[in-house]
Write a protein that binds this DNA or RNA. Sequence first.
DNA 1: AGGCGAGCTGATGTATACATCAATAGACCT
DNA 2: AGGTCTATTGATGTATACATCAGCTCGCCT
Lengths: 235, 235
Amino acid sequence: MSSVKRSSAQQLRDALEDDIINGRLTPGERLDPEALGREFSVSRTPVREAIQQLVASGLVTVSPKKGTFVARIGIDQLIEMFEVMAELEGMCGRLAARRISEEELAALREALARCEAAAEAGDTDEYYYENETFHDCIYTASHNGFLAQEARQLKQRLKPYRRLQLQVRQRMGGSLAEHRKIVAAIEQGEAELAEQSLREHVLIQGERFSDFIASVKKLDASATRLDPSHDRTRA
Amino acid sequence: MSSVKRSSAQQLRDALEDDIINGRLTPGERLDPEALGREFSVSRTPVREAIQQLVASGLVTVSPKKGTFVARIGIDQLIEMFEVMAELEGMCGRLAARRISEEELAALREALARCEAAAEAGDTDEYYYENETFHDCIYTASHNGFLAQEARQLKQRLKPYRRLQLQVRQRMGGSLAEHRKIVAAIEQGEAELAEQSLREHVLIQGERFSDFIASVKKLDASATRLDPSHDRTRA
DNA sequence: AGGCGAGCTGATGTATACATCAATAGACCT
DNA sequence: AGGTCTATTGATGTATACATCAGCTCGCCT
């Protein structure tokens, strides 16, 4: 399997990445290398390495002589990133409509079914998860591994902020309808339609920015002063 | 200005990046941290840091216990990356057609003029350089800084391989005609046309892959055995 | 009392020494 | 002679100590 023995730096990187993506570490929060070293029983060197990698992937920023913090993405850049995300998703859909295999199509239908089930059950968390699987199926079906990788990476980078979005329950119904339309387009090999549908599917969430921006600003403000309640040094 | 005092690791990173992009270090070539340390009069720590960053940006790969090497991109992935590059360029064009400012349009026309001059003079190197400026103008004019950054980064990553392309002199004329078409589309705000023109402009180079692939394979083969003639440790 | 400056503090950046482990080459056994 | 096991080697990975430097505080001067 994928080698079970990974370097401390890699493990730490994954752990921090997961913490950031899943909101256990919020944007603006400070990361103390020494504290992290104590927590994971390693020296500052691999901690530093892990942080460097997170900086490279855009999840962390480090200000010399001031400290390292979970990256705070400005609203303007956030919009820009959504714009690119929509394009990448659209491209995945366009390619998938042309290249998808039978197995992949089956997996896509399965993912759609799971989304429908979650929506019917009103389980927003479950829907959020299955929604990811759905989109991931399309990435894979694009048969462009590099594109899929880029899409996943950007999505990860946006994740700390996305979780504020779909909370709106009404959005689930609309999202589901769009999913069906997307699947239909891919099934029939209508590349342009699939692209446009997916692009809009992503952008619609961006257009709900009225509510969204408010949430972000609020989160920005609360995280401005380094919230000590999230201190990871405490056991 | 942009702080003149940068860390050794950053300087080294930039130096190596430049070496790789401009072909002084060829794909597959080994990078010896100790030798680099001696050359730049620093310890292995900042060297390692620089290498880590290059790994993150995809220009270098490191195999544990075997060594670190300039990244070798397989032909299949190379094609995938060109596909994405074309999409990003197209997106830049589409956005630029809607958002470009007068100043930016002037700069774009200027860049086109320089391309024309270089082409008329038959100076391929100059054309290569001005061609970059031209495309960079479009990135900027997209008014999406994140998109522009991603496009530049991907272009950098492809650069070590792109230099094998435009060598064909005949391509300059065709390229120039496409440039004019692109500028015209942007001038008139025809977003879709600008997008399609740019996408094809990039992909055409990919379709010339018949010749291209041969060159890459040749380069791949010659770099397979770690060529000692490129050893940087020698003064 | 308010502003300014020197020293302190705490953060990142760097150097060096050690640990670890896979690839390799050598010798031994068959 | 061929294959296998083992010891060496050389590479990355990690630990620790030191250097450096900006921000902050405390105290002095005006």
